[in-house]
C-alpha cells in the first residue's frame, strides 16, 4: 500500500509543484507582503503600516460600502429571479425547454469585455436603447453613468443578467431531484400549487439555494469587471468602486502591493465570515 501511495505521489508531483508555486506560494507571499511597506525601496517589514491604513482609509470604506450594497440588493434579487426562472424551466407546459436552458446559460459564456461594452451602449445617454424605451413611454431619459445611484443600478442589472441564468440552471437541477410523488401526496392533501411551492419546493431547495447564495457572495465580494468596464473604473468619482477595483487600483496602478494584499485578505475574510453567518442562519434543525 505504501509503495502504491509513493507511486501515486510521484505521478502527482508535477501538478503539486505547479500548484505549490502558482497557488500556495502567492497566497502565503501576499499574506507576508501585507505586513510590509512596499512603496519604499527596499520593502521593509512594518506590521501595522497597511492594516493600520486600511482601518482609517475612506476609500476602503467607500469600496466596502459599495460592495456590500451590491451584495444585499443584487444577490437576493438574482436568487429570487433564478428560482422563478428554474420553476418556469421545470414546467411541463414549457415547449422548447432546451432552447430556454441554453438561452439562460448563454450570458455566462459571453466574453466579459463584449458584454460590458454592450451594456455601456444600452445605457448610453444619447444612443442607448434603455433611454429610447424610457422616452417612448413618456419618461425622461437618465444619465446612467454620471450619477452614483443609476450607475450602481446598471452594475446590479448587468451582474444579474449575467449570473441569474447560471443560478437558475443549478436550482433547476435541485428542483428535478425533488420526487414527483411528494407533490402528488400534497395534491391529494388538497394543498394548492402556491402552498406547495412555499411549503415543499422552497424548503427542499434550501441546500441548493444556500449553495447559489454562497457562490454569489464570493463572486460579489470579488466584483471587478463590471465596475471597471461598464462604469469606467468605479465611476462616477469612485461611486461604484468595489473592493476588487480598489485592490486593482492599489496593486496594479499605484504598485502598492502591501496595501493591495491587505485589501485582498480583507475581501477573503469578509466572504468567509458572511458565508459562515449564512450557513449558520440556514442550518438544518437537529
Amino acid at each position: 500500500m505504501r509503495t502504491q501511495n509513493a507511486t501515486a505521489y510521484r505521478f502527482l508531483t508535477p501538478y503539486l509543484l505547479v500548484f505549490a508555486i502558482f497557488w500556495i506560494w502567492p497566497i502565503i507571499s501576499s499574506f507576508l507582503i501585507s505586513f510590509q511597506a512596499t512603496r519604499t525601496v527596499p520593502w521593509r517589514f512594518a506590521p501595522t503600516f497597511n492594516w493600520g491604513r486600511l482601518v482609517g482609509d475612506p476609500a476602503f470604506y467607500n469600496a466596502l460600502k459599495n460592495t456590500l450594497l451590491i451584495l444585499v440588493i443584487q444577490v437576493p434579487v438574482m436568487i429570487a429571479l433564478a428560482i422563478v426562472m428554474a420553476v418556469l424551466l421545470n414546467s411541463p407546459l414549457l415547449k422548447a425547454r432546451g432552447l430556454y436552458r441554453f438561452a439562460f446559460f448563454a450570458p455566462v459564456v459571453v466574453g466579459e469585455v463584449a458584454y460590458s461594452a454592450v451594456f455601456r451602449l444600452m445605457f448610453s445617454l444619447d444612443f442607448g436603447i434603455i433611454n429610447k424605451l424610457l422616452e417612448s413611454v413618456g419618461l425622461e431619459k437618465i444619465d446612467w453613468f454620471s450619477n452614483v445611484t443609476p450607475a450602481m443600478a446598471v452594475i446590479m442589472i448587468a451582474v444579474t443578467w449575467r449570473w441569474a441564468g447560471y443560478n437558475a440552471i443549478i436550482i433547476l437541477a435541485g428542483l428535478q431531484s425533488i420526487p414527483e410523488d411528494v407533490y402528488e401526496a400534497a395534491t391529494l392533501d388538497r394543498v394548492s400549487k402556491l402552498k406547495q411551492f412555499f411549503y415543499i419546493t422552497l424548503p427542499l431547495l434550501k441546500p441548493v439555494i444556500v449553495f447559489c447564495a454562497v457562490l454569489s457572495i464570493i463572486g460579489t465580494m470579488q466584483l471587478f469587471t463590471e465596475p471597471f468596464l461598464i462604469t469606467e473604473r468605479g465611476g462616477p468619482g469612485g461611486g461604484t468602486e468595489t473592493l476588487g477595483l480598489l485592490l486593482y487600483r492599489q496593486g496594479f496602478r499605484s504598485l502598492n502591493f502591501g496595501y493591495a494584499s491587505a485589501v485582498a485578505y480583507t475581501m477573503a475574510g469578509l466572504a468567509i465570515a458572511i458565508t459562515l453567518v449564512q450557513l449558520w442562519l440556514t442550518r438544518e434543525p437537529k
Partner: peptide, 12 residues
C-alpha cells in the same frame, strides 16, 4: 387517500 410505493413523505 393514497400510500405511495416510495412513501412520498415530506423529508423536511
Amino acid at each position: 387517500a393514497m400510500v405511495f410505493q416510495s412513501y412520498a413523505l415530506y423529508p423536511h
